[in-house]
Amino acid sequence: MEITPTTREYEKVYEYCTMCGVCISRCPEKAITEEGKDSNVCKKYFDEKIYPEYFPRYGCGKCQTAVPCEKTNPNKKKY
């Protein structure tokens, strides 16, 4: 099945971010805090837990799903 990607109208990585913290609670390994993301913790979790269990189909991405900025820009009010 071919899926057309949703285009994003942003230029900066955190432009859609409202700093709500939902991604922090979604991270199973607590790699994300209010100070930012510790990529080393994230990579270790992936390498040691996700990759061996789910190879060749693998990935986590829980911090990017079920969050307000997943599908829309929460910074824009819709009228």
Rank of each mutant, 00 (worst) to 15 (best):
E48P: 02
Y14R: 13
C23H: 05
Y10I: 13
T6G: 03
N40F: 11
C23A: 01
Q64L: 11
S25Q: 13
P5K: 06
V13H: 14
N40T: 11
I3R: 12
E70L: 01
R26S: 08
F46T: 06
G21S: 04
G59T: 02
G61P: 01
C69F: 09
N73F: 00
E29H: 11
K30C: 09
T65K: 09
S39I: 10
R26Y: 02
M19D: 14
V67D: 01
E2G: 06
I3M: 12
E11R: 11
R26H: 13
Y10S: 11
P28K: 06
T72Q: 07
T6K: 15
T6F: 10
C69L: 06
E29T: 13
I50C: 09
E15P: 04
Y45I: 05
E70Q: 14
S25E: 15
N73H: 01
Y51D: 07
T18H: 03
K71Q: 08
I50E: 10
R8G: 02
T7I: 10
E29C: 15
E11W: 08
Y10T: 11
P28R: 02
K62P: 00
A66E: 15
T4Y: 07
Y45M: 06
C23P: 01
K77Y: 03
K49N: 15
V13W: 15
I32L: 09
R8E: 08
E9N: 11
E2Q: 09
V22T: 15
K78W: 03
Y54S: 07
V13G: 08
R26I: 03
K43D: 10
E29S: 12
Y51M: 09
N73T: 01
C42M: 03
M1C: 10
T7V: 14
Q64C: 09
Q64K: 12
I3W: 06
P5W: 02
D38P: 00
K78V: 01
C42T: 03
V13S: 14
K43A: 15
R57S: 12
F46S: 04
T72N: 01
C23D: 00
C60A: 07
D38W: 02
K77I: 07
Y14Q: 09
Y54D: 07
N40S: 15
G36R: 03
R8A: 03
T18F: 01
R26F: 02
E11H: 12
Y10E: 15
D47F: 06
K49Y: 10
K62C: 10
A66H: 11
Y14M: 13
P5C: 03
Y14A: 14
S39N: 14
D38S: 10
Y45K: 05
N73M: 00
C63N: 03
C20R: 01
Y10Q: 14
T18S: 08
S25I: 10
K30R: 12
